[in-house]
């Protein structure tokens, strides 16, 4: 494996829901390549297929056609158990709705993927992640005792604790105010810059997209545009033109 290998690669990716009159094409021949150690944002209008793309890339949802590689592993065609192992060991998730287990403490939520694998957490990694996220004094709290921002940071720590190849984030700032959003995005940015983490994020917020190295723009299940080193203005402009084209 060389450093030039893509962290994620997909070709001819399609996803179709339903059949007959109710047939909906969510993804329509997507070709995508995500570089290792890059922060990629996926944007697009509602119904453009950005969440579906993320779910397929992350092995949560099975595409109708096409092939996906995570690193050197071809994940399309894997059995459910193999996919589960892949998600557990090589992929991290941050969801919009935090999705923490309410009955577990913050620390237990963070180490849950390791528990599932029957592994003990690496104390150094745990310290580093927890320290970076500023969660040290909150580890014994239950999710209900944490603020939204803190909960999302716990979710981030959970995603990072296995040292995954890729972290997928689905609207991670959707339920946060602007200040906590900035903190979270800054943290994701730092994990890319300092630890060489690969991050793929779906968002509808141009301000959030600015933290990414590259923005992929989706419309009607296709990648229609791409912005390198985005600023809020360039992203907003492209989105507006997309919406005009769609209207």
């Amino acid at each position: 494996m060389t450093t030039t290998t893509a962290a994620i690669r997909a070709t001819g990716l399609s996803k179709v829901y339903g059949s007959g009159a109710a047939r909906v094409i969510a993804l329509d021949g997507i070709e995508v390549r995500v570089r290792r150690g890059a922060f990629t944002a996926i944007m697009g209008p509602s119904g453009s297929g950005k969440s579906t793309l993320l779910h397929c890339l992350a092995g949560l949802d099975a595409p109708t056609g096409g092939t996906i590689w995570v690193g050197d592993t071809k994940i399309t065609g894997l059995s459910d158990d193999e996919l589960t192992d892949l998600r557990r060991d090589r992929i991290g998730f941050v969801f919009q709705a935090f999705n923490l287990v309410p009955t577990l403490t913050a620390a237990e939520n963070i180490t849950l993927p390791l528990d599932l694998a029957g592994r003990r957490p690496d104390p150094q990694l745990l310290d580093r992640v927890v320290g970076a996220l500023g969660l040290g004094h909150r580890l014994d709290h239950r999710p209900s005792q944490l603020s939204g921002g803190q909960q999302q940071r716990v979710a981030c720590a959970r995603a990072l604790i296995t040292g995954p190849d890729v972290v997928f984030a689905d609207e991670p700032t959707g339920a946060l105010d602007s200040r906590t959003s900035r903190e979270l995005l800054g943290f994701l940015r730092d994990s890319v810059d300092e630890a060489g983490q690969t991050v793929v994020m779906v968002t509808h917020d141009p301000v959030a997209a600015v933290y990414a190295d590259r923005v992929l723009l989706l419309a009607d299940g296709r990648i229609v545009d791409e912005v390198q080193a985005p600023t809020a203005e360039t992203v907003l402009d492209r989105l507006k033109s997309l919406e005009r084209a769609g209207a």
């Binding site: 589960t84 557990r88 849950l112 993927p113 599932l116």
Partner: peptide
């Protein structure tokens, strides 16, 4: 749990 790696 399934999403973050619990098997069936």
């Amino acid at each position: 749990l399934r999403a973050i790696g619990a098997k069936r």
